[in-house]
Design a protein around this nucleic acid. Sequence first.
DNA 1: CCGATGACTTTGACTAATCAAAATAAGAAT
DNA 2: ATTCTTATTTTGATTAGTCAAAGTCATCGG
Lengths: 221, 221
Amino acid sequence: MASSTVENYLKQLYLEQQNAPGDLVSMGKLAAAMSVVPGTATTMVKALADSGLVSYEPRGGVKLTRGGEQLALHVLRRHRLVELFLVKVLGLDWSEVHDEAEELEHAISDKVLDRIDAILEHPRVDPHGDPIPPAKGRPQPVPPRQSLADCEPGRSYRVARVIDQSPAFLQFVRRCGLVPGVTVALERRDDAADSVRVRPAGGEAVTLGTAAAMKVLVESV
Amino acid sequence: MASSTVENYLKQLYLEQQNAPGDLVSMGKLAAAMSVVPGTATTMVKALADSGLVSYEPRGGVKLTRGGEQLALHVLRRHRLVELFLVKVLGLDWSEVHDEAEELEHAISDKVLDRIDAILEHPRVDPHGDPIPPAKGRPQPVPPRQSLADCEPGRSYRVARVIDQSPAFLQFVRRCGLVPGVTVALERRDDAADSVRVRPAGGEAVTLGTAAAMKVLVESV
DNA sequence: CCGATGACTTTGACTAATCAAAATAAGAAT
DNA sequence: ATTCTTATTTTGATTAGTCAAAGTCATCGG
């Protein structure tokens, strides 16, 4: 059994690999993602390599092996199914479930996970729009998506995913009505002012800074 | 935050204290309950004493302080609410929830626990008939109960609680229909044969050995 | 080509939890 | 009262995960 710590390293590694597909993940990136000092990451990665979960190239970086990726996907599946369950069944707020799931993802058995999956009717995305990896087989290919910061004025988009899952940002996003599934019209974009103005269907228009807009992914509609 | 290990020691200590109210718990008992060697229990208990969770008398034994008891009750509450939730909401089998809850009891936040409690409508006992400690205040006094092994032939009783929570025993008990809440008639008792014969309302009569009968607590009806 | 910079690795130390085995204490038995 | 037994405590070692700080390497700018 992989410890929670190991599961977290593999999960972060997977997420980092998603950000830069193909590349090795540097120790610095991994250490930052795990909130540990670089030396700790090095030590841990060497242990993971000994278990065959990652392949490690000293001073080059690290990447998941097939086995490590399987495990990472399983952790991610637990995390995201739990998030959705907390929202849909237990009625928790969107903004609080990430941290809760962070703990629960290590404590939930396959049996319980299957029940949750069935009750939710085999969902494909979590409340933030993140894809839920399937129980077996490859994850769904992620359709190419642009962020709100890269949209053209005058067109409409559907919110697909919110990257920043901190409670503060999620609360803000919900207050604006920019939750996944909602259609938004891009009203204005002002590069000089570093902002975009969007109007969610049936809501008030809001102006976002580019940094915030980059954290909201959309698809054309 | 108390680690899972600390939570488990406190929980076992509480359960041992219930078995022999008033007495100090011996290191041997505690070590056995925790499946560790006695030396480990001694070390741990000294640490718990330093944190003010137990009072420890070398070569005498250990007992929970007020604070330690509060924490133990909180763990027990989580455990038992989770068990009930797994049965009632997720539809898991009675016999499997104990082990699941053993993990989950350390991962569930107060917020999630409150939601579970509300959804279950503030239950007072778990699926095995064990009382669920309230969120605050003293636990409900446990009404005096006898085991099936001490019942009189010809009378009727209601099953209140099943002590042995191993999957095998729970599966057996359910197959017989001796689940908490069910009324049973005591048909015969044969001390020489070390057995009792009981008939659950609307079911087949079963003969239990005394050891098994002692693990089923009942109340007069 | 050479030194400076910054990323990475190594080393030594620490905490929590554990075990094996030796030492000790307290009661029971002779 | 002395020995024996048995529970308990101590000691020394181990594993997982971590940090601080010292050491190493590669590359980039001159």
